[in-house]
Simulated assay, not measured.
Amino acid sequence: MPDLPETDDGEKASYSAPALEKGLDILELLADVGEPLSTRTIAERLERSKSEIFRMVFVLQQRGYLVREAGTDRLALSRRLFDLGIRTPSGRQLTSVVLPLMERFSEESGQAAHLVVLSRAQTVVLATTSGHLDATVTVRPGYGRPALEANSGLLILAFQTRARRLTLMKDADHEALTRLESTGVAAIFEMIREQGHQIAPSRDILAVTDIACPVIGPAGYAQAAILVPCLQRHGVQTDEKAILTSLKACCHEAGLRLAYS
């Protein structure tokens, strides 16, 4: 495709694609609000007519980018964009390298495991393994939470330079960015780095202890985390130390393989 022509003042000219822009506006709005919205609400927030938004919504539903919330007229993002993201070279490489090691870990330990990355200041589960215990905790790929409110998010952020941390969190709101630079969060990052892992009660599910380790890439920062949600059960003693030892070995091997892949 040829470069865009230059204007008289040397700036690049821009082309207009109104239909494409409307579709992208809808997807970005739903991603930002994080909850389903009706067509009317979408039109109001984008300051467009309901009829033009309806046409775009219809096409986006047909292409699988939007789904309708059961029993309502509200629309939400589907997994389609997430699936496209996984199919990028970096997503495919990470999953293809780490997932076989996670499967081996789950087979040996019985525990479920989640491969987590950061995207748009949120944690995103790329892949899961279920283990073979009769009761484990699993979530669907694509599940996510604000990075600072998730143990895996704190772990990944701890193993970054300050510049990379700010880049990973550039889409966060002002409150989250303020917390990111606070002395309290800095102390959490330092503690995690010193330990080399994170063991803490789940910030999302009751009676679950998260055990998480970083997958350190060839550049020396965490490309992902593997998190094991240990379910606390009556009369069953979970050997967290053994799980941590096995998980650290899994993550270390994953990092080595990423360096040579």
Results as ranks from 00 to 15, higher is better:
residue 192 I to C: 04
residue 63 R to Y: 05
residue 241 K to T: 10
residue 3 D to K: 13
residue 71 G to T: 05
residue 149 E to Y: 14
residue 32 D to H: 11
residue 241 K to M: 04
residue 13 A to L: 10
residue 229 P to V: 02
residue 13 A to W: 04
residue 203 R to M: 15
residue 226 I to P: 02
residue 259 A to I: 10
residue 163 A to I: 15
residue 109 S to P: 09
residue 177 L to D: 04
residue 128 T to L: 02
residue 104 R to F: 04
residue 120 R to N: 06
residue 102 M to D: 04
residue 132 H to Q: 07
residue 2 P to G: 13
residue 242 A to Y: 08
residue 226 I to H: 01
residue 77 L to K: 01
residue 125 V to K: 00
residue 140 R to W: 08
residue 136 T to A: 08
residue 15 Y to W: 10
residue 21 E to C: 12
residue 191 M to W: 12
residue 166 L to S: 14
residue 93 Q to H: 12
residue 58 F to Q: 09
residue 66 L to I: 06
residue 2 P to M: 10
residue 151 N to S: 14
residue 95 T to D: 09
residue 4 L to V: 12
residue 144 G to P: 01
residue 239 D to H: 06
residue 53 I to S: 01
residue 37 L to W: 02
residue 217 G to P: 09
residue 48 R to N: 10
residue 44 E to I: 12
residue 162 R to I: 13
residue 232 Q to G: 11
residue 35 E to D: 07
residue 15 Y to V: 15
residue 180 L to S: 02
residue 168 L to K: 05
residue 205 I to M: 08
residue 78 S to Q: 04
residue 196 G to T: 07
residue 38 S to I: 10
residue 57 V to S: 00
residue 89 P to R: 02
residue 61 Q to D: 07
residue 70 A to F: 09
residue 105 F to E: 00
residue 240 E to F: 07
residue 141 P to W: 01
residue 27 L to A: 11
residue 165 R to H: 11
residue 130 S to C: 11
residue 87 R to H: 12
residue 37 L to Q: 05
residue 2 P to R: 09
residue 250 C to K: 01
residue 129 T to Q: 00
residue 20 L to Q: 12
residue 6 E to A: 14
residue 16 S to R: 12
residue 25 D to I: 07
residue 230 C to G: 06
residue 67 V to S: 11
residue 158 A to Y: 01
residue 146 P to M: 03
residue 225 A to F: 00
residue 205 I to P: 02
residue 38 S to P: 08
residue 104 R to P: 09
residue 26 I to F: 03
residue 122 Q to E: 09
residue 101 L to N: 01
residue 110 G to M: 03
residue 5 P to D: 00
residue 54 F to A: 15
residue 163 A to D: 15
residue 177 L to H: 03
residue 102 M to S: 03
residue 112 A to E: 03
residue 125 V to L: 04
residue 176 A to T: 13
residue 121 A to K: 00
residue 233 R to Q: 10
residue 221 Y to S: 09
residue 74 R to I: 06
residue 254 A to V: 03
residue 13 A to M: 12
residue 254 A to W: 03
residue 85 G to S: 08
residue 193 R to M: 08
residue 42 I to F: 03
residue 55 R to L: 13
residue 88 T to Q: 04
residue 2 P to L: 09
residue 167 T to F: 15
residue 159 F to T: 12
residue 97 V to M: 03
residue 10 G to T: 12
residue 130 S to K: 11
residue 52 E to I: 14
residue 10 G to K: 06
residue 228 V to F: 05
residue 89 P to I: 02
